[in-house]
Design a protein around this nucleic acid. Structure first.
Lengths: 173, 173
DNA sequence: CAAGATTGATCTGTCAATCTTC
DNA sequence: GAAGATTGACAGATCAATCTTG
């Protein structure tokens, strides 16, 4: 949906920027629409089927990948691309729901370990099938393995560019 | 960053879902990371350089594309993929900043016309170059025309799938 | 005092009314 | 009464402190 430029008939500034060609603009609009629509659809699916937001789901999922279902808050924040503050608020809510438990690291009290509870793990196991089905339905089943590989590479190139530009703190995963 | 499934060693449910293969999962993680990173980088750029959010920028941009820089609130909401409520709040803030003015349609008082002020248009003209430069730097300049065309088609296929699944209200653009 | 974590204030978006106009 | 638009209450995210531990 986005259109980054005012009409090209707009006044010429000192250093005329390189506007997007109509092909580029069409490509960009399509990409921007997809980047809006897909996350929204996944949020909706998770909320409807599992009463979880996307980031809540992935917080549980990340913990479930650890040997003991435990991660330090700071590591969990990095892995979920959340700020520490955001994660702290988020985990507080998940803790209230009994899905996660926090306790200070016994070895170093500066760290706090977030651990998936058995209820939290059960919640994840119950939520995963419909979410994976949605990812398949919206994306995976539409593309051939070769196309998926291309999409992966394109995605990686975009992220690499952003990271290289230092516009954003480096993502961890 | 997303990992949609708990470890594959998780219990088998009645109807075992089709988990993602490792290739699929890698592709999905890369795409999900890009879908997170790119919008965040653009938000950051707009906020830093122009003190506008992404949706605020596009609200101004959409209006600027209309002959008289005017759109009904409902049309503007559809074009920016915002709910009427969200847009109403948003435009109220932009109106406070003097970038947009609202007035009821003289012909039919049920409609409200949002009009870009001259300050609003000047703001957009001042903001566009750096934003377009960011879109180029992060995406357009990385890909060949053929690759951009592929990305466009892939994006359109994803959106079409989501729309077909009726998971979400139909986007207008 | 530096890093990890949390907190509280504020801002934005959502949801469920409500209001207005035709 | 239906459609467009707004409103207010609430939920979630951000930002700038603040607190704690080593």
């Amino acid at each position: 949906v986005p259109n980054p430029a005012p009409r090209r008939s707009a006044e010429r500034s000192a250093e005329e920027p390189r506007w997007l060609s109509s092909r580029e603009e069409a490509a960009w609009r399509a990409m921007a629409l997809a980047m809006h629509t897909l996350p929204a659809a996944l949020e909706l699916q998770l909320q409807r089927d599992s009463n979880l937001s996307y980031i809540e789901y992935h917080t549980l999922a990340r913990l479930s990948e650890e040997p003991d279902h435990v991660l330090r808050m700071s590591e969990l924040a990095a892995l979920t691309n959340a700020s520490q503050s955001r994660l702290s608020h988020l985990v507080r809510r998940l803790e209230r729901r009994g899905l996660i438990r926090r306790q200070p690291d016994p070895r170093d009290g500066r760290f706090v370990n977030a651990r998936l509870t058995s209820r939290g793990y059960a919640k994840l196991v119950a939520s995963a099938p419909s979410h994976v089905a949605a990812v398949r339905a919206f994306v995976m089943d539409e593309f051939s393995p070769a196309e998926l590989q291309q999409l992966r590479e394109a995605s990686e190139r975009i992220v690499a560019r952003i990271v290289a530009s230092d516009s954003v703190q480096h993502p961890v995963v």
